[in-house]
Simulated scan of single mutants.
Amino acid sequence: MAQLLIDLRSTTLSHDERQWLADPACAGLILFSRNYDNPEQLKQLILDCRTAAGKPILVTVDHEGGRVQRFRRGFSRLPAAGSLLALAGNNQVVAQYLAWCCGLVMAAELIEVGVDLSFAPVLDLGVNQSVIGDRAFGADIATVTQLARAYAKGMEAAGMASCAKHYPGHGQVKEDTHLHQAVDPRPLADIAALDEQPFKILIKEGILDAVMPAHVIYPALDNKPASSSAKWLKYRLKGELAFSGLLFSDDLSMKGAHSLGSPAERALAASDAGCDLLLCCNEPANHPAILQALAGQGAVEFNALRAGAMQVSAQTLARAQSLLVSITKPVA
Rank of each mutant, 00 (worst) to 15 (best):
L8G: 01
S14V: 06
G28K: 14
L29V: 09
I30H: 01
L31M: 03
S33D: 14
N35R: 05
D37S: 05
N38I: 02
P39S: 09
Q41H: 06
L42H: 02
K55M: 03
P56Y: 12
P56I: 03
T60I: 06
R70E: 00
F75W: 01
L78W: 00
A81V: 08
L85H: 03
L87N: 02
Q92T: 12
V93D: 07
Q96F: 04
L98D: 02
W100N: 00
V105E: 01
V105Q: 00
A107M: 03
A108G: 00
I111H: 02
V113S: 00
V115N: 06
P121L: 09
F137V: 05
I141M: 09
T143A: 13
A158C: 06
H166V: 13
H166W: 13
E175Q: 14
T177D: 12
T177Q: 11
A182L: 12
I191G: 00
A193E: 07
Q197M: 12
F199T: 11
I201P: 02
I207K: 11
D209H: 15
V211D: 02
V216A: 10
D222N: 02
K224M: 15
L233R: 00
L237K: 04
L237C: 09
E240N: 10
A242V: 10
L252K: 07
A257E: 08
L268K: 05
A269E: 02
D272V: 13
G274F: 00
C275L: 04
C280V: 09
P284D: 15
P284L: 05
N286L: 09
H287L: 15
A289K: 11
A289W: 09
I290L: 14
Q297D: 11
N303P: 04
A304I: 13
G308M: 02
Q311F: 05
A314N: 15
L323G: 09
